[in-house]
Design a protein around this nucleic acid. Sequence first.
RNA 1: GCUGAGAUGCCGGAGUGGACAAUCGGAGCAGUCUGUAAAACUGCCGCCCGAAAGGGCUACCCAGGUUCGAAUCCUGGUCUCAGCA
Length: 298
Amino acid sequence: MDKLLIITGPTAAGKTTIAVSFAHEFGGELVSADSRQVYRGMDIATGKDRTSIDVPIHAIDIADPQDEFSVSHWISLAQKSISDIHNRKKLPIVVGGTGFYISALLHPPQSLNIPPNLRLRTMMNDKTREQLQNEVKQKLPDVWKFMNDSDRQNKRRLMRKLEIGKSLVYAEKSTFDTFVCGLAMPYPELYAKIDRRVDERVEAGVLDEIQRLLEAGVSFENPSMATLGYREWKQWFENKTEENKRSAIQKWKWDEHAYARRQMTYMKKISGIRWYHPVQDIERLKRDVDSWYTIGKV
RNA sequence: GCUGAGAUGCCGGAGUGGACAAUCGGAGCAGUCUGUAAAACUGCCGCCCGAAAGGGCUACCCAGGUUCGAAUCCUGGUCUCAGCA
């Protein structure tokens, strides 16, 4: 079976650095599993660190910020990249923090073939949550029965259920020999790292980057601009006071903390991830990856 | 020093005699997740017991007081802010 190395973990855990070093060691190429690095022109806040990545990297810069993009696009691209890399007799290294993308790669869900129904969506958009709930209850009683309370409150999820309708939904098995490693550290440590990185990114000129995006016709309403590091600046661009700048930066940090937590929550459930501290466990990590790669087991 | 305003839970900030362990927001914590996933959504959030209902304890700067009952009223402190000096 073709080998596939996956490196994931919450934001700021240090995935890229480690991925690059493995790429050097095994002759690998990177495939980004990051729902935000796909957008062209969104570099600083998404952490597209071009200077430190001196190996080929795929699945970044493949969409305009105004474009619609989702897992399904990413999956087909990632799958293609992976098989191309295999054909080149190299090791694909999927690296990124979008847990949903990674789990979808591991077990491609059939429902990904059901595209969004734009007409239906615009129609549903105006409906209230209650209306959507009633619709699901009536049209898809079985689906409703199995939805949990949190999803039942979620308009977006309700709409998708209606979109999928009665089609059967199941997931396929992965066809690779994968090793999935997760990089993580205690939250206080991670939060400190995040905060430092946010300050650096402000220094690095996110604001100019956003300015350029806005001039190019991107708006804060575009889904891509919901990205952390961009969304928080909306107010500042309306009123450029010091006060607004400070609160944007603070908000950005907090948003990243919460995001990291959400990532962990999701990733804890992906089975088969082996966890390592990016610094303290680095030797063990290298050993494990090495034996997986060379002798086929850990 | 005088005059005015104020001191509420980790933070901001409501409440101004009972329905207040205290609205709401933020932070924090725990979750949900199968084409928006850095999205969207849910729960918890003083302490203790309990699965829950509920119960107990300690709380709204400090000390007294009024009252059946006070975060809320009165008195005296302490501190903070604004204006005057």
